[in-house]
């Protein structure tokens, strides 16, 4: 009988489930990248190069901000130093917080999508940015407008609420009344591909 073949362990990407070398052909390579840089940099040398550049920047920025805040000695390690070096001021402002990176604009966007002539769906995006629980909101919208409403993943992977029917014009009042945290000025419509303020 032949030798027992040694079983091979393949490195699978936990993000897309494919062997790491196939992430580039997977459903969303961008999402795999952070994990790949950490766990399979040899497979994507270009990725590593890019991130090294960024990483190097980050480290030097961090060093700068640490240096500044300790010399300042006022204990505000998390806040950006006001008198920081002019070259790195902007980056430093973003970095200590860490998560701020790309802050999403707090706004609610309402779009009416017409399906086969008569039927249409009103899409509401962004309520979650005001701390509104979408499943809750969807129930309330469905009840208020006596229609079907559901939380779905939008094209950019962000969750949105789809409400059956054209309710676009009553919805603003309903939103501002139900969730006072959402100002009318933060509500926008998409009309003919253009963003229009509701207020």
């Amino acid at each position: 009988m032949a030798e027992k073949p040694q079983s091979v362990r393949v490195l699978y990407c936990p993000v897309c489930s494919l062997p790491a070398e196939y992430c580039e052909f997977g459903p969303d390579f961008e999402k795999c990248k952070p994990w790949l840089i950490e766990n399979a940099p040899e497979l994507y040398p270009d990725l590593l190069k890019d991130s090294n550049d960024k990483e190097a920047d980050k480290v030097s920025e961090q060093l700068k901000s640490v240096g500044i805040s300790s010399s300042g000695g006022d204990g505000t390690t998390t806040a950006a130093p006001s008198g920081g070096t002019s070259t790195s001021k902007q980056e430093v402002k973003r970095l200590p917080g860490g998560k701020i990176k790309k802050k999403e604009k707090q706004e609610v966007v309402i779009e009416k999508i017409v399906r086969n002539k008569r039927k249409c769906v009103t899409v509401v995006k962004g309520l979650d940015l005001f701390g509104v629980k979408l499943s809750d909101a969807s129930k309330k919208l469905g009840k208020k407008f006596a229609t079907g409403a559901s939380v779905v993943k939008g094209p950019t992977e962000k969750e949105q609420i789809d409400v059956q029917g054209d309710i676009a014009y009553d919805i603003v009042e309903f939103i501002t009344e139900t969730w006072p945290d959402v100002p009318e000025t933060a509500i926008f419509f998409i009309e003919d591909g253009r963003k229009v303020a509701a207020a």
Binding site: P5, S7, V8
Partner: peptide, 22 residues
């Protein structure tokens, strides 16, 4: 197969074909 890759005969496609196969 990934664990025992040598049990089957192998045919290889070029890089351009990968996305179609997938």
């Amino acid at each position: 197969l990934h664990q025992y890759p040598d049990i089957m005969k192998k045919l290889q496609v070029d890089r351009g074909a990968i996305k179609f196969v997938l």
